[in-house]
């Protein structure tokens, strides 16, 4: 008889505990989505019923043409505009920062991280004044501007990481083969950055898509975005449309997950 294969055991936990850990993870991950779904379809969910007594699609039907629908369109447009602007600015910034060495590199990385880490309310206090001076306070443009600030910071850090890990060999090769700056960027740099650019667009979109505080402080309620609408509904106790809005907020987020997955292997990423 063959002896059992000697696979080195690396298990730290025995299987009943493992099973319980996995079950706990499953509940914590899945339950919130189930609740939002129930809440969004639930009709007359009175205390102390564990499940709603009836189901209705009324809140979902009200989305199109309702305030949630309009807010979602606003948010989507704002997100796309923010993503494009942030990537356009952050790509050259990240490329430039990657050339730094030593202490300056850390200083630059910290500076770029500041608008990302600054509590949005505090960041909004400064941005409100800037937009006032620029004459775009309480306008959609002002809100867009305020969203791009943290998005640029975040995405610059992302590109800094990308350019640091990939080096400049490909660009150098293109140069020595006779490529101009233009050709180097259009034929080498940008095509080879398709994955990180997709990731950056997704992250910048999400930063704008989920933004509450900056929209509130800088926009002053002039632009009704989806998160603002959801916040209002939740605070007003309008659970059913609030749950619908919350699910609407998750949908593009989940779609963006695919793009984010590309960056899942990087360990220097930041939370959104």
């Amino acid at each position: 008889m063959m002896p059992p294969a000697l696979v080195p055991q690396s298990r730290v936990l025995t299987s009943p505990w493992r099973a319980m850990a996995i079950a706990a993870l499953a509940i914590s991950t899945v339950l919130p989505f189930v609740i939002l779904l129930l809440q969004s379809f639930g009709e007359s969910w009175r205390w102390p019923d564990v499940l709603p007594s009836g189901l209705t699609g009324s809140a979902w039907r009200a989305v199109a043409g309702g305030s949630l629908g309009r807010a979602a369109v606003n948010s989507a447009a704002l997100g796309v505009a923010t993503a494009v602007a942030a990537v356009c600015v952050a790509l050259p910034v990240g490329r430039s920062l990657a050339q730094l060495q030593g202490a300056w590199r850390h200083v630059a990385a910290a500076l770029v991280f500041l608008p990302v880490a600054a509590p949005p309310i505090a960041l909004g206090a400064g941005l409100q004044i800037v937009t006032l001076w620029l004459g775009i306070a309480s306008t959609s443009v002002g809100v867009w501007f305020s969203h791009t600030v943290p998005a640029i910071g975040y995405v610059s850090l992302l590109f800094l990481g990308v350019f640091t890990s990939r080096g400049t060999e490909a660009e150098e090769a293109a140069r020595t083969l006779g490529a101009s700056t233009w050709h180097t960027w259009t034929m080498v740099v940008i095509p080879s950055l398709r994955a990180p650019i997709t990731e950056a667009l997704a992250i910048a979109f999400l930063i704008s898509w989920t933004q509450v505080a900056l929209t509130l402080v800088v926009g002053g309620g002039a632009l009704r975005t989806l998160p603002l609408e959801v916040l209002t509904l939740v605070r007003a106790g309008q659970d059913r449309p609030a749950a619908v809005g919350a699910l609407l907020l998750i949908v593009p987020a989940i779609a963006a997950l695919a793009a984010l997955r590309l960056g899942a292997r990087r360990t220097d990423a930041l939370p959104t």
């Binding site: 600015v89 300056w104 200083v107």
Partner: peptide, 12 residues
């Protein structure tokens, strides 16, 4: 590049 980074941090 540090000046660029400073520009990004300007709002803060």
């Amino acid at each position: 590049p540090v000046l660029l980074a400073m520009l990004v941090a300007t709002p803060v």
